[in-house]
Each structure stands twice: as structure tokens, then as C-alpha cells.
Write a protein that binds this DNA or RNA. Structure first.
Length: 475
RNA sequence: GGCCCGGUCGCCUAGUGGACUAGGGCGCUUCCCUUUCAAGGAAGAGGUCAGGGGUUCGAAUCCCCUCCGGGCUACCA
């Protein structure tokens, strides 16, 4: 039988990189088995809705190369794929649970609940619903429900053991008496997560539930719902959280978390996917560079770790560098376009890319490294050109020697530029000499290889810049 | 507080009773290469496998306790 998995993000903000990791695992699992992927939007909390969040989910996942088969915009056999458009389905199921005696109407006001909680806290008791409405006669409750505001609560048994054999954690058990009578249907007619997932996963034919480990605690409630309906519980896998450097769940406090931000900062989707896959999973071998296709081949649910994993930006940067170097040159140029001004010449960009491709950690860094080629006058303090053991005066002289050598260099390419400059270093070390020329020509002390840079800049512009440096140094 | 999940170098991790003198990668240090910076190559520092008890001829690996971290504990997801 073919597998069906779902990603079920909530549209409560920009697509979070931590949820992407979980989505990626769902994707890999389904794709390697030729299964089907469903995107379902879990928007049952209308108070936390953020407009544009669905666009952010689509943009982010598409950018990363994660695709799916059924969803709000692609349609499928179980439309609609947005929970807020499926309300009657949940209401019907909630009513069915009440009819079966597995759930009951609760008429407690939010005020009473808050007061109850306050008192329990004061007495250092467990803060749990006191089952106040649990014993209202069914007929009476049904009658009141017609006119009074109410919720539907799960009728949790007093005793018994609930358990699952989690695909990553193994067996996990709970005692029924530690579980509260969870609200299933809110007074606004919307289901809570607990009712909605169980119903939708069932109705949509989901064969494997894979989600973040923050959901483990609600599993027993779900189990009770499955049991009440007489449904079989699908295999579950709870994957570890992605944590910030402080061990807490990764959040904005730790830096960027939105997929779109990583895109803007010049990270490659290939690198992000590679890095993300390795947070909480490893192949068991010493390989670590994986493309999406590689991952679909080698990723295994059995190798997913139990412990939470920390976000390590240095490691992400490393992988980004790896993937930048792996990109075909044309492709790198194409991706760089979005990170440099549109008026920068395409030809020149193409020529300079080989010089900087192994000097970038992110696409965004390229611009500063090559700006000297595209802008007319690099700004820098004149003294920057003077090497440690030299003076402004000797530097002016050295630059004169460089200028005249470059005037005669034929043809004006990296090779002849190099021999021309080496030939006139005189008493200076090549290191000092190229330093002075580099600063004069590029305005910076570090950058792409000097001789190649000079070739690309051209004789005229190079000589102009050297002259300008000299007059600046003369004060 | 209660329930649940975790705990191997700074970080990501390999490891499922003997090949572990605990392996790899990132980061860090040094060296090589070298026109700078990178990249690349080489070497190195870094771990009482959270701690304590067991079980066993033998434990990072199994059991118990403790400690620490995290999640949940909402008419949020």
C-alpha cells in the first residue's frame, strides 16, 4: 500500500525553519516510497491568523524544492485542504462523540475556568478542568446546547493505560488519570487541534503521522479519540525539536527563523536542505554532503535521533560554501544577479565569478568583494595603502613603478600584469608591493586575486586609480 | 508542581555488550600552498560517553537512583 503523509503548518506567521525540518522529513519519507504528500493548513485558531502566511509557506517550500501532491491550491480528492473550510466535518464528528458518550457538552464560562485555575494554583493542586459539566444528564445537556454557548469536551476514562510505539522513541505510555478532559470543539464552533488532526488524518487517509516532539504530550488524547471512533491508530513518529544555542526552541531571539530571511541573506536552498537534514538525522556513515535526491535515497526514519538538536550557524555557513562551490558557474552567476545592482554588467559579472566563488559564504557577500570593478571610485583612507614597514613617500614611489610597468604590459592580462609588477617590486617584498597596489586599485586590503582583478579592470581604470592613490598620499 | 521526552569533545554527530587507546564534520590552533583573503592539503588541541550505584569475564551501549535540559500542562498550534 502506498504511503500518504501530510505537512500541516499553521498560518500564524512566516514559514519557520524548524517546521521546515519536520516537513522535509515527511517529504523524504513519502518520496522515497513513492507515496503521496498532502499540504493541509491548520488554521483553527482564528486569533493567531496572519495574512500572507500561506503565501510564505508556498514560497518557502517551493524555493527549497519541496513539493507535494494535494493541497489548498493544487486540489485533490479531499478538498478543501484548509481546516477553517471544513467546520461541518468536525462538528459532525464532535456530535458523534457526544452521542457515543465519549465526549460531553461543557457550559462553563471562561471566567469560571479562570477562577478554577486560580484556586487550584493557590492550593498548589494540578490545574485541570474539574469535570463540572461531565455529569449533566445527556438529554438536559443536549437541550441546553441548543441555546447556550458551549464547548465539547473529551470524556477521559478514570483509569487505563494509553501507549504508542513511536517510530523514533519506541514505546511511550501514559496513565489515563493524568489526562484532562480536553476541549475538542470550541464555543465558536471551531475544533481544537486535537479533534481536527485526528479527524482529518483519518478522513484524508494519512498512513504515517510524523511531526515535532512537542506533540508527544497530546498523543494520549488523540488515542482516546481514535478509540471512541473505532479507528485504527496510524504509526507515529515524533522528531526532535530544533533548538537555539541556549537549548530552547529555536525562535526569533536566536536570529533568523523565517525561510525567506535565509533566502534574502544569500543562502542556497541546497545548503539549507543539506544542513537541515543533518539536524536530527545522520546516515551512519561519514558522508555529509547530500543533495535532495541523495537524501531521498539514503534518509531513513530509523536513523532519526531522539535528542533535540541545536541550530549551528557556523555549520550552515560551511554547507553554504560547499554548495556555492558545487554550483555550475552559469548557475552561480544567475543566482548572484539578485544580490547585485541590476545595472552591473553581466559579462563582467560572469568573468569575476570564478575569482570569488570560493571566497563566499553567502551570495550576499559577493557584492562588496567585487564592487570595485563596477563602481568608479572606491573610497578608502589613503594610509590604508601604506604597508607597515613603509611610508607614504616610499609608497608613492612604489606605485609609480607599478604604474609604469603596467603601462607597458602587453597583452594586458593577468600573466603579464603579474610579471610586470613582480619585476618592479625592487626593495619591497612582493607582499608589501601587492598590498599597496591592491588598495590603490580596489580600495580594500583583501579581495579576489590581484592580477586577475587588474586584468578585468583594464589598463586605463587601473592607472587612473593608482594616480589617484598617489595624489591622495601626497596629501 | 504533574505528565512526557532527552543528556557522547564548544557545536552537529557515529556508536545498539567485546574491532573504542570513543570515529567523522563544523569551529579553533599550527604548518604547507600563496599576491591578500579564501579554498585546498597536512598535523594538533579538545571527551572522567551528565553523576552514582548495580548486572556482566567485559558497558557509552542493559537495569535502578540522582542531577541537568527541554516539551506539554489553553475554548494555541
Amino acid at each position: 500500500m502506498s504511503v500518504r503523509l501530510r505537512f500541516a503548518p499553521s498560518p500564524t506567521g512566516a514559514l519557520h525553519i524548524g517546521s521546515v525540518r519536520t516537513i522535509l522529513y515527511n517529504y523524504l519519507f513519502a518520496r522515497q516510497r513513492g507515496g503521496t504528500l498532502v499540504l493541509r493548513i491548520e488554521d483553527t485558531d482564528r486569533e493567531r491568523l496572519v495574512t500572507g502566511a500561506i503565501d510564505s509557506i508556498y514560497d518557502g517550500l517551493h524555493w527549497l524544492g519541496i513539493s507535494w501532491d494535494e493541497g489548498p491550491r493544487e486540489g485533490g480528492p479531499h478538498v478543501p485542504y484548509v481546516q477553517s473550510e471544513r467546520l461541518p466535518l468536525y462538528q459532525r464528528h464532535a456530535a458523534e462523540l457526544v452521542a457515543k458518550g465519549a465526549a460531553y457538552y461543557c457550559f462553563c464560562s471562561k471566567e469560571r475556568l479562570a477562577e478554577l485555575r486560580k484556586q487550584q494554583e493557590a492550593r498548589h493542586e494540578l490545574t485541570r478542568y474539574d469535570r463540572h459539566c461531565r455529569n449533566i444528564p445527556a438529554a438536559e445537556a443536549a437541550e441546553r446546547a441548543k441555546t447556550e454557548s458551549h464547548t465539547v469536551r473529551l470524556k477521559v476514562p478514570d483509569e487505563g493505560t494509553l501507549a504508542i510505539d513511536d517510530l523514533v522513541h519506541g514505546r511511550i505510555e501514559w496513565q489515563a488519570n493524568t489526562i484532562e478532559d480536553q476541549v475538542l470543539l470550541k464555543s465558536d464552533g471551531f475544533p481544537t487541534y486535537h479533534l481536527a488532526v485526528v479527524v482529518d488524518d483519518r478522513v484524508m487517509g494519512i498512513t504515517h503521522i510524523m511531526r515535532g516532539e512537542e506533540w508527544i504530550a497530546s498523543v494520549p488524547k488523540h488515542l482516546l479519540i481514535y478509540r471512541a471512533f473505532g479507528w485504527e491508530v496510524p504509526p507515529m513518529a515524533h522528531v526532535p525539536d530544533v533548538q537555539g544555542p541556549d537549548g530552547k526552541k529555536l525562535s526569533k531571539r536566536h536570529g533568523s527563523t523565517a525561510v525567506s530571511e535565509f533566502k534574502e541573506q544569500g543562502y542556497l536552498p541546497e545548503a539549507l536542505v543539506n544542513f537541515l537534514a543533518l539536524i536530527g538525522w545522520s546516515p551512519g556513515t561519514e558522508e555529509e554532503v547530500f543533495s535532495m535526491d541523495d537524501l531521498i535515497r539514503v534518509w531513513r526514519i530509523e536513523k532519526v535521533q531522539r535528542g533535540g538538536a541545536k541550530w549551528d550557524k557556523d555549520r550552515l555557513d560551511y554547507f553554504n560554501g560547499v554548495w556555492i562551490r558545487r554550483l555550475p558557474e552559469d548557475e552561480l552567476v544567475r543566482r548572484l544577479r539578485a544580490f547585485v545592482p541590476p545595472q552591473w554588467d553581466d559579462d563582467l559579472l560572469r568573468k569575476v565569478v570564478p575569482l570569488i566563488r570560493e571566497r563566499m559564504k553567502t551570495l550576499a557577500e559577493a557584492k562588496d568583494q567585487i564592487a570595485f570593478l563596477f563602481t568608479e571610485t572606491p573610497e578608502y583612507p589613503p594610509s590604508l595603502a601604506v604597508p607597515k614597514q613603509q611610508s607614504a613617500g616610499t609608497t608613492v614611489e612604489a606605485l609609480s613603478r607599478a604604474a609604469s610597468a603596467l603601462r607597458d604590459a602587453r597583452p594586458f592580462d593577468a600573466r603579464s600584469v603579474e610579471s610586470a609588477l613582480r619585476g618592479v617590486a625592487d626593495g619591497w617584498s612582493v607582499r608589501e608591493f601587492t598590498h599597496a597596489v591592491r588598495v590603490a586599485v580596489t580600495g580594500r586590503t583583501i579581495g579576489p586575486p590581484l592580477f586577475e582583478s587588474i586584468e578585468l579592470l583594464g589598463r586605463e581604470r587601473t592607472l587612473q586609480r593608482i594616480e589617484r592613490a598617489q595624489s591622495a598620499l601626497r596629501g
